[in-house]
Design a protein around this nucleic acid. Sequence first.
DNA 1: ATCCCTCGTGTAATCGATTCCACGAGGAGG
DNA 2: CCTCCTCGTGGAATCGATTACACGAGGGAT
Lengths: 343, 343
Amino acid sequence: MASVGIKDVAARAGVSVATVSRVLNAHASVSPAARERVLAAVDALGYRPNTLARSLRTDQTRTLGLVISDVLNPYFTELARSVEEEARALGYSIIFGNADERPELQDHHIRTLLDRRIDGLLVSPADGGSPLVLDAARAGTPMVFVDRWIPGLDVPVVRADGRAAVRDLVAHLHGLGHRRLAIIAGPAATTTGSERVAAFRDALAEYGLPLPDAYIGQGDFQAGSGRRATERFLALPEPPEVVFAADNLMALGALDAIRARGLRIPHDIALAAFDDIPWFVHTDPPVTAIAQPTGELGRAAIRALTDLIEGRTPESVTLPARLVVRSSCGEHTTTGATRRSDA
Amino acid sequence: MASVGIKDVAARAGVSVATVSRVLNAHASVSPAARERVLAAVDALGYRPNTLARSLRTDQTRTLGLVISDVLNPYFTELARSVEEEARALGYSIIFGNADERPELQDHHIRTLLDRRIDGLLVSPADGGSPLVLDAARAGTPMVFVDRWIPGLDVPVVRADGRAAVRDLVAHLHGLGHRRLAIIAGPAATTTGSERVAAFRDALAEYGLPLPDAYIGQGDFQAGSGRRATERFLALPEPPEVVFAADNLMALGALDAIRARGLRIPHDIALAAFDDIPWFVHTDPPVTAIAQPTGELGRAAIRALTDLIEGRTPESVTLPARLVVRSSCGEHTTTGATRRSDA
DNA sequence: ATCCCTCGTGTAATCGATTCCACGAGGAGG
DNA sequence: CCTCCTCGTGGAATCGATTACACGAGGGAT
């Protein structure tokens, strides 16, 4: 019922609450004798400080908010995990909010987090910038964007640059003889949604290849949209030879659609994805993907955020992504053991 | 800097803080005129109540803690997602803690959560019961176990019963002609770790099949252990014909090991897993698995926990899991279109 | 011996809400 | 007209910590 408070500890140790607080916070000077008795009392009573009261007084919660676009996406799950780890190492806790790619849900979480007086916010915005995010940023809430960001704000950004990897991917595809390449894009309101299309188009241009509108599927980073976009591609009079999904869930949807049509990869159509995940090694066939340094991104993001909070000057971080070639785009003849494709 | 408080609102509305608090909490009687002015002031000032202060006073945070065994496991990710959804619908927030299958990390999170004065705790224990969990349970912290539980505690449990599904699985395997069946178990300290082995053994017994010790691999629910256990199975003088992994990550490890050996599934060895995930449809080959009603479990768990918190009497819930047959254990001849296996 | 610092400590204000209690005004009932 | 309730409201205590300030004791310097 009545949980033990600092007063109880003080009483048992025969000192004032101020002294108890001082030993607990390694503050100022306390005599060894007093410290001893306080510690003993804390131990005997099983006292645990009430963080609510502490935070109310000190105006800091040692808690960070992470608003993620979609927990079910393995990429974000991994990001969340590394974020939590690094934060814990630095003495912070993390409260997650899952936006499910829905701006209004994202705002709900941001509001809740702000109400909780978190010390800082890590956001991977689901949209181009809700008033809430903009206000928070301008109001001076310590904030860092991770993976995605909102242009025009003075907020540090931690992300991966996939342009070189996309170029490598296109080179790989071109080398395999593919000429009709399509992409399933993410929402244009997100930076990752538009950047990946731009990088793809630029890379194609280097080979003199076009990217017709019909070869740009509008997705929302969810499996269902990947399936629908792929179905449309396959229904085209001249379907693409390659589908490049801008994230792993849409690739899963593409896989569904291709399988439903009874087509084989890469014989009938090739597939590649942005974001590498462990399962891509074991899909049928293994999927060629662009891997982000997810763990490093999470750690860098937390470091930037804590820098901001603790008064240091954080810097934006951009890390390179890299291409991981597997067999979903065609046989890459490396060793002598070339399996014959039945053309 | 100075965030606006209830006092500022009171001043602007020309009323006392008590009145402001009353309109904000829909309490007692407030004149329409006063309510009007308070609301206007709240709006004009952009006032948001400080949840810390509120919680300190009311002794409730409307926050629940969820300590999960491993976020990277898609099963738990999905569980977490449904838990958060249901909690949000009921007006609660969730703080996640990822135990990474490590008891000491689990305890760290539980302690942090308790310090934060969460209203209740949802735990899927990584071990047989740390003193911390035991103390918390006995101290009367509202608590519910989900997926896994600790026997001998008066704590409601929400979980899936996989025994019938395991029996179906064994029937399926037996029907396919398999006789030497092995299992990769989870940690014996977890209920899911030991129960699944027991269910498997019982089901085998019904067919007069033994489960020799050599066919029980000791895993820890992580991919690495699945790989190692499978390697040991394959190195046996008489390797099993089927490997049944007690969770999806160990199945992933098994897939790794089998592929590394250059063996084919199900031709050379069959594979099945507990926990179904979207990727199992697209692995090579699609994996036969036992699916839990994950979303329903999460929702039921939150309902039980809120019942406990709000003074109602919660009940333990056990939902059935079901077998999903795919092709990783051998051809199941259903339709006429039987693909010939090259025996 | 006196003065001054330092050290250890306690008292009380404070953070921002909620809520008990008291109080005045006004309406109903006698 | 007086009494009694009800209604709306404000003052002040409270939740459990942190911390500014004051103060007494003791030691060193003069």
